[in-house]
Write a protein that binds this DNA or RNA. Structure first.
Lengths: 205, 205
DNA sequence: TACTAATCTGACCGACCAGTCAGTATACAA
DNA sequence: TTGTATACTGACTGGTCGGTCAGATTAGTA
């Protein structure tokens, strides 16, 4: 019996999918893609291994679904942060701090995300377009904000794509450092430094 | 019969080691760590699989040796670039362009390097200290150059570690972009943008 | 040539694991 | 209760691959 275009089965199925992805995220984070086995994921989900194949076609499918899910969450949260902040300087600060905070709150996802984008992006053809687009979308959000400010003459006439890219990469590095090397690194202090550096770098005068 | 402290056998052995590493670098780059098999590496080297185990204890050993070898080359080349350039602004430019050029010339190594430092650094305990130290050494080179310029009052009093880190990360991102996404990206133009951005970001006034 | 040491080889082994499928359990309608 | 469709299970299979080792080959020496 259709309900909002989805049957009861559809909804139950979605719940299962989400359960599997939640469990898989933890397993992939803990053991890495290769070392994680389907038996691990099944056990973590609390179902039999065969059940996984009712919802996903392969191990890689599960991995990519978990990746896409998290990536979408990142994009949503940074887009909201950029929208809310009034000035470009505050937008940059919001982008950096929001993203750092997101990965603080989702350490499991960090390992999936950075394993893929440090490694398999090396073979970009392996990534489905939807995932690639989400990844690039993050830079584009920043780019548009910078472009607008430049067109209004609020900053010097830099290339928005290049500037967005610089901010994106430094942020990426900060997140990696905090999660892998030195968790005590202050998000505020480091974030403030980045914003200051970039702002002085692109400001008028 | 000893000769400069090394026997003839030692030298031959070193040659074999290097042959294996050269072949392995290509195989790892082409197929990725997991998919690369010892049979692949043996075939690429032109020896039997058993021979590999006369020179290295395991697949991972070969991988790490190839990683360390390349990393040492990167460090040497950037250190030389930093030494040669007279001013900090030129040092930064030299660092960025030299590193970009190095990875242009050693694309095989790029895949090994970035696979590891996007992925396995995620489990830093897996990396031998010597490799970790080489990696961090790159940032420290930059840091010392910035610190010296700051102490001489040539730039505003920024934290040299943070600034070095920013340059390091943007450079990393540029290299990744050029090799993976858009090889047509001009090293000169992008490099110039980075130097300009950073320099305006840390310059006096 | 004969002997020895060093070097190399690749068939083989055992562990591992993604994916399958025959069979079980559950929900629910008739 | 019976029938059936849906959901689930986990023992099993087929293939893979890191690592081994008994024996072959080569280089060096007398």
């Amino acid at each position: 019996m259709p309900w909002q275009g989805r049957t009861k089965q559809d909804v139950l199925s979605e719940v299962r999918c989400a359960e599997i992805l939640d469990a898989a995220r933890g397993v992939f984070a803990r053991k890495g893609y290769q070392a994680a086995t389907m038996d691990d994921i099944a056990a973590a989900t609390g179902v039999g291994k065969g059940t996984l194949y009712l919802y996903y076609r392969s191990k890689r499918d599960i991995y990519l679904a978990a990746l896409e899910r998290g990536l979408r969450a990142v994009c949503d949260i940074t887009a909201a942060a950029l929208d809310t902040a009034p000035t470009l300087e505050e937008k940059i600060r919001a982008f950096v701090l929001t993203k750092v905070q997101f990965f603080d709150d989702h350490r499991d996802f960090y390992r999936i995300y950075h394993a893929e984008f440090g490694n398999v992006v090396a073979h970009p053809s392996c990534l489905p377009p939807s995932v690639k687009q989400l990844y690039l979308g993050q830079v584009q959000q920043l780019e548009h904000a910078i472009e607008a400010a430049r067109d209004e003459g609020r900053i010097r006439p830099v290339d928005p794509g290049k500037a967005a890219f610089a901010i994106f990469e430094i942020t990426r590095g900060l997140i990696a450092r905090r999660l892998l090397a030195d968790p005590s690194l202050s998000a505020e202090a480091e974030g403030a430094f980045i914003v200051d550096l970039i702002w002085k770098g692109i400001a008028n005068r």
